[in-house]
Amino acid sequence: MTVSNQMMKGLLDGAILGLIAQGETYGYEILEKLKEKDFPEISDGSIYPVLLRLGKKGYVSTQMKKSDTGGPKRKYYSITGSGLEELEIFRNKWTYLNRGMNNLMRSVEDAE
Rank of each mutant, 00 (worst) to 15 (best):
M1G: 15
M1W: 08
V3D: 06
N5E: 14
Q6P: 00
M8S: 12
M8E: 05
M8N: 04
L12M: 15
A15M: 13
I16Q: 02
L17E: 12
L17F: 10
G18K: 04
I20R: 04
A21G: 04
A21Y: 01
Q22P: 00
Q22F: 00
T25E: 03
T25S: 01
Y26N: 11
G27P: 02
I30D: 01
I30K: 00
L31I: 10
K35W: 01
K37E: 12
D38R: 14
P40I: 08
P40H: 06
E41D: 11
I42N: 07
D44S: 14
G45Y: 11
G45V: 10
S46Y: 05
S46G: 03
S46Q: 07
I47A: 15
Y48R: 15
Y48N: 14
V50A: 03
L54N: 07
G55Y: 05
K56P: 01
K56Y: 08
K56I: 01
G58D: 11
V60P: 01
S61Q: 13
T62I: 05
T62V: 10
Q63Y: 00
Q63V: 05
Q63M: 06
M64V: 10
M64A: 12
K65E: 12
K66F: 06
S67E: 12
S67T: 09
G70Y: 04
G70P: 03
P72C: 08
P72K: 12
P72F: 08
K75G: 00
K75R: 14
Y76L: 10
Y76F: 13
I79Y: 07
T80P: 08
T80F: 06
T80N: 13
G81W: 04
S82Y: 02
S82M: 08
E85Q: 13
E86G: 03
L87T: 11
E88L: 09
E88N: 15
I89M: 05
F90A: 10
F90I: 11
F90M: 09
F90H: 13
N92P: 01
L97Y: 08
L97I: 09
N98L: 09
N98D: 11
R99T: 15
R99L: 09
G100E: 09
N102P: 00
N102M: 12
N103K: 15
L104E: 08
M105I: 14
S107L: 07
E109N: 07
E112Y: 10
E112D: 04
